[in-house]
Design a protein around this nucleic acid. Structure first.
Lengths: 369, 369
DNA sequence: CCTATACATGTAAGCGCTTACATAATGAAA
DNA sequence: TTTCATTATGTAAGCGCTTACATGTATAGG
């Protein structure tokens, strides 16, 4: 080991070769004491450990990944980062990964065309051991690709028959939301969705329509407003614009079910800006139940985001760690959270608008694949 | 290439060897067409490309990382995921990374003792090309370690003389918040912090104290409430508990400056729960300006989180891509955002509690290091 | 026609680690 | 003492890619 003055010593990390030399053993032995210490005698083990200590050794992750044929990385692709729903899903993911030796890699497309690039990256060989696709339903071509590559993959808030998935029952949520509004006596119930309409939005709309039909009402297409889905379908701005359109209808709707909380919040803004009040003039129900909704007093359908993240990650690890798990798709029931904006203000509501806990209606099913 | 029936073909990815064989060239040539296509003749280039196409080739990331001696990964370590401030910082990071070929790795400690493990992982050889430390001030030992390892590192919302950093002027923010309350005529201005107190909280408290002193008032230690910092110092629960304590003081404080918006929101809850109202009985000012605050009508000091993420990432890339950048530390001025909870309701306020845009007081300085 | 030059491709040595297999050393059984 | 396990260690071949260098081939200049 030739010494150079500190200023000129490049910060080049020690390798197992350095340790081997210093401890007078082969690199194989070094590797063994680091990975399966039981297989090496106590005396050389301590000699090696000491050398490693002195050299401040840290294994080179890429080299390990290459040699071991796995990375201990989990890739997640999500449409956006700064969003309450994904944030909570991430918390769930992070929660189960905390005790395990996996690191999290996150891929977020910067625009819709970027999705392909991100997906490709996520399933690229040597990049991750498994991938979590949040609100990113794969088309057939991608589904094939995923199966071909054989990289364990779980869909969250999306569905495909051949890939394990976990999602909320969106149709039911849409139904429950609308039904709630009907029961409260609203007459002209509008709906806010996005265009193009992501699959979950479609299902929510279908639930909305079913509730209306079941109540013997016609579906008035002029009461369904689809806002521009870019950059993110469920964003606040879309709800704001869609609501503005709805306010121009004659007669005006007296209630709105928005496909997301962010849209609902945008709608709320638009209503108030028009000098009307919620829920007196127009009632609003959202979908998601982000923290924001609590503060805004939004009535909404709760998606158990954190739980979804947790369960998805557990499923993913199961697939990574034992081959040949059957693929299952589980659907969670969303839960109606009644707050201020629907005008159902019957029971007392706590300071922050949180409704008293309703009996849980959550249920789930894991249909055979 | 021996063919097996599909069911038995393990999904083993094609390598450059497969391509080389199929295109009748050496692996060096394959690598060249993939990386520096200009150096190879058009005819063999297309032959290779075709073979790659047919084999559905994707390079093995770990192998590339090992051979190239860099990963194109950026590691970020943040104390929590599900938090509005970090979410926005992340958005900034993601935004600048979008066009570049870097992927994001995120490390979040599951509890305070876990930080070491995460930091170690973040700077481990072969794991990232650079690291962003959010609200994670390194102690001396870690600072040394980081310098030794030579991995480019940027501190966000933290400071260390030897490491590039970007943060808001917390002392000034604390001063401005308190000053605002003083100017509005409040007499007994309390403060909510955390215990142990993270450095930014200390600075905010110092600003609070300076404003008080400057106004010729005494600092009443019974008006400074420090809540339990776990699991996350700036969390809602802490503010709630601290506020409960403050409400027991005689005479009661008539205003509170909380070290974070989440704490402020918790405090707001506590006040309302006690049957008092904001701002009539007690005024509240927070720090951060998350979206939550907008909906809650919270007066607060805005930290430009997204901009911080952006600039930190740009700085990081600068360090990664050209050696020997000088280390600089930049501090941004926080900006007072007046809303409902401080009782300054002079000007009209838009529907969601957003104050009309004040002239920006933002400024910044980049002291020589 | 010979040589110098440029360009295209191949050879092989890494990058830092893991691991199957071979070898050596030790002690117990015969 | 010889033999056979058993255990500890070393040897070397990968993992899949990149790249310095060597070699080969075509082209232009003399």
């Amino acid at each position: 080991m030739k010494l150079l003055p500190p200023a000129f010593r490049l910060p080049v990390a020690a390798t197992i070769y350095d340790i081997a030399e210093r401890a007078n053993v082969s690199t194989a032995t070094v590797s063994r004491v680091l990975n399966k210490p039981a297989e090496v005698s106590a005396s050389t083990r301590s000699r090696v450990l000491e050398a490693a200590q002195e050299l401040n050794y840290q294994p080179h992750a890429s080299a390990q990944n290459l040699a071991r044929q796995h990375t201990n990385y989990i890739a997640v692709v999500a449409p956006v980062v700064a969003n309450y729903f994904y944030m909570h899903v991430m918390r769930g993911i992070q929660h189960v990964l905390a005790d395990r030796e996996y690191d999290l890699m996150i891929h977020v497309p910067s625009h819709p065309e970027d999705i392909d690039k991100r997906l490709k990256s996520a399933i690229q060989p040597g990049r991750s051991d498994g991938v979590l696709l949040l609100s990113t339903p794969p088309n057939e071509s991608w589904a094939d690709r995923i199966k071909d590559v054989g990289r364990p993959t779980i869909l969250v808030d999306a569905y495909h028959p051949d890939i394990e998935s976990i999602a909320v029952d969106n149709e039911r949520g849409g139904y429950d939301a609308t039904r709630h509004l009907i029961d409260l006596g609203y007459e002209r119930i509008a709906h806010i969705t996005a265009d193009p309409e992501p699959p979950p939005a479609t299902q929510r709309r279908e639930g909305y329509e079913r509730a209306l039909r079941e109540a013997g009402r016609d579906i008035d297409p002029t009461l369904i407003a689809a806002s521009d889905a870019l950059p993110f379908a469920f964003a606040e701005k879309g709800g704001y614009q869609a609501m503005q359109a709805l306010l121009r209808r004659q007669p005006r709707p007296d209630a709105v079910f928005a496909a997301s909380d962010m849209q609902a919040l945008g709608a709320l803004d638009a209503v108030q800006e028009a000098g009307l009040s919620v829920p007196e003039d127009i009632a609003i129900v959202g979908f998601d139940d982000t923290d924001l909704s609590r503060f805004a007093g939004l009535t909404t359908l709760r998606q158990p985001a954190e739980a979804m993240g947790k369960r998805a990650t557990e499923a993913l690890l199961r697939h990574i760690e034992n081959e040949n798990q059957p693929v299952s798709s589980t659907v969670l029931a969303p839960q109606l959270v009644v707050r201020r904006t629907c005008g159902a203000e019957s029971s007392s509501v706590s300071a922050n608008g949180q409704a008293p806990n309703k009996p849980s209606t959550a249920s789930e099913s894991t249909p055979p694949s």
